Simulated scan of single mutants.
Amino acid sequence: MNIIQTKTQTRQSAKRIPWVDIAKALGIIAVVIGHSYPVKDTFYQTIYWWHMPLFFIVGGFFVKPLTSDLLNLKMFIKHRIWPLLKIYFGSGLLIISLNFLVEKPNVVYTLAYFGRLLYGGTELNGDTSVFWFLTVYLIALALLQLILYLPSRFSQFSVVISLFLLGTSYPNAEAALGFPMPWNADVALMACFYMWVGQFGFQFIKQGIAARWLLVLTLFAASTLVILQKYDIINQLLYMKSHHITNTWFALVVPLIFATAILCLAYWLQFTPLHAVLTTIGQHTLPIMLGHKALFSILDKLDDPTWLVLSIGGILVPLIAVQAAYLAQRYYARYRERLYWVNPS
């Protein structure tokens, strides 16, 4: 069994695309910095233009249309939906329990926190504030699978662009409906568009990502937009969770420019000494995503850390924890194997 698992893991590693992992690493570094950076200046504002859209775009890269076969649907739920639900609730319960031990709030607050985990979305803040990403991803993924049943790319595009325009046509769900949407479901209307772009555009990105002109062009466009924001020629915000979006067309186009620039940059970074570190980070974005805010709360109690210290800790500590879990699992598997050979019955 151990040999089979090792072979499976080797095959899965071989299928990984280094520049995709590096792009995810750049995205998660931006997320962690965005949550630790103390000043809402141009740097802060502009990283929010692209880091979460990037994750939804990359999330669409490997989405395959489902067939109408019931078994295929069951496998999709078993292997794509159910694991993420387990991660969402398992990680949420763990962090809320740690919050109870560290912060020592009253029991009523903790029970209410569990309730907010069920509702999700903007009801979550503090240590679990970033959990909205998982629920929005799940809803957007389910929507995308339905849209991929449409017969033509044009009809699919028509639907996802309509959903995007609908999802950005109002300030936020609470202002429009009087209450926040469970699981930030309305944000999934935006996320579905980004995921469809990733699903549709992956083949073209693979073909053109090595083109130096594309890297130069997209970096120039992205840099120009940052400069325009810096000098107040434009004033655009794009905060997906809070649904704070100043311009629909800006939110439609600009994240795609930045995401393309990041993907092109990631392609060339794979040939640098940073390759190993970035690919390792990129392969573990989910534990970093879900764990860094809780770690910030602990570090804040120990000292008065700078945003740089928080950022480094928010990336390294979840990585170390994951590696420790891998080692523990490996030693446990070897221990079980020895027990089997000593006493096969």
Rank of each mutant, 00 (worst) to 15 (best):
I257L: 12
D300L: 12
M195H: 03
K74T: 08
L316I: 14
A175E: 14
W307S: 07
L302D: 07
W196K: 07
P83C: 11
A251E: 00
A25Y: 00
A221D: 02
Y231R: 02
W268N: 06
Y332C: 09
V31Y: 03
E337G: 07
M75D: 10
G208P: 00
S152E: 10
S223H: 07
S297N: 12
G27F: 12
T128L: 13
T135A: 07
T67F: 01
L73N: 07
W19R: 12
I209T: 09
S155G: 08
I87N: 01
L295K: 00
Y340P: 03
N343S: 13
A175C: 06
P305Q: 12
M1K: 08
T272H: 04
R338W: 15
E103W: 03
I57S: 03
V63H: 00
T272S: 11
T67V: 05
P180L: 06
A325T: 06
L269F: 08
G291L: 15
F56V: 12
I281P: 03
S129I: 08
V63R: 00
I209R: 04
F258N: 01
L327D: 02
T248K: 08
L214Q: 04
V20C: 06
W19I: 11
R80H: 15
Q5N: 15
G198W: 01
L150H: 08
